[in-house]
């Protein structure tokens, strides 16, 4: 692995994104707009918005990063550039690192904008700091990126890649506590929810919501999400093969 090649790769991916205005707008503005919309919908119940808006700060970038990564990597695989890169000095982890870095930058900008809008204009209220919320959101969106990297190996068209959304992403969104409190779900659903990494991102956010301290529980939950990022990245990297049949 080489830091130089990782940086070159990240630069190339960012340049690709910059040449696609619509994607730039989607990455930077859409999460903030969606949160504003939710805030308007929940205008009569600010306490509910404090719950839902907060979760969306992490959940929406998670979904978006999954989409963008699975499609850009799929293009890399099907367009022949992946095979070509494998004949250059690029190591697999340089490529994965390049993607993580490039999309990490995107996720940070996206989160910064969405959080600024939510805290300053939409009166989102948390006891803990917005910085911690931002950190959780970025780690969560890296999990989306890593999942996207992994599934791109199992799709041969962009349409197939998008089909993984309802399979891998939507259940996590529904069971993480975004649309219904976890404690009020049937026992077996709570069990499923416990097995899904996004749940721990939400738990970490809920810790920040009620506590101004960086609690051990918050770090523990965030650690689980970070662990899921590592596992998904390793699985994803394993699908990048230098030699194929």
């Amino acid at each position: 692995m080489s830091l130089r090649i990782t940086l070159i790769t990240a630069g190339r991916i960012l340049r690709q994104l910059l040449n696609d205005r619509r994607t730039v707008v989607m990455i930077l503005a859409v999460p903030a707009l969606i949160i504003s919309l939710i805030s308007a919908i929940m205008d009569a119940a600010p306490a509910v918005f404090d719950q839902v808006g907060l979760i969306l700060l992490a959940a929406f970038p998670f979904m978006l990063m999954f989409m963008i990564t699975s499609i850009t990597l799929l293009r890399e695989r099907t367009g022949g550039t992946l095979e070509r890169l494998m004949t250059t000095p690029t190591a697999k982890m340089d490529l994965v690192g390049g993607y993580a870095l490039a999309f990490g930058v995107c996720a940070s900008l996206q989160t910064a904008i969405a959080a600024t809008v939510a805290y300053l204009w939409l009166d989102l209220d948390t006891v803990g700091s917005a910085w911690t919320v931002g950190l959780i959101a970025i780690v969560t969106s890296l999990f989306g990126m890593a999942l996207g990297l992994f599934v791109s190996a199992f799709a041969s068209t962009e349409f197939q890649a998008i089909q993984f959304m309802p399979v891998l992403i939507v259940p996590q969104l529904f069971l993480c506590g975004l649309i219904w409190p976890r404690e009020q779900m049937a026992g077996w659903l709570q069990g499923v929810s416990d097995a899904l990494p996004l749940t721990y991102a939400v738990k970490a956010l809920q810790e920040v919501q009620v506590s101004s301290d960086l609690t051990a529980a918050m770090w523990g939950d965030l650690g689980i999400v970070a662990g899921a990022v590592v596992v998904a990245t390793v699985l994803g990297a394993a699908t990048l093969r230098r030699r194929t049949g």
Binding site: I8, Q16, N19, E83, T87, T88, P89
Partner: peptide, 25 residues
């Protein structure tokens, strides 16, 4: 290696494509 179908990035300019490979090498 020059692949049978041009393996370049359609969303990059000619210059950016070649500069990327130049940098890798």
């Amino acid at each position: 290696y020059v692949t049978q179908d041009a393996s370049i990035y359609p969303d990059l300019s000619v210059r950016s494509n070649v500069a990327y490979f130049a940098a890798l090498y």
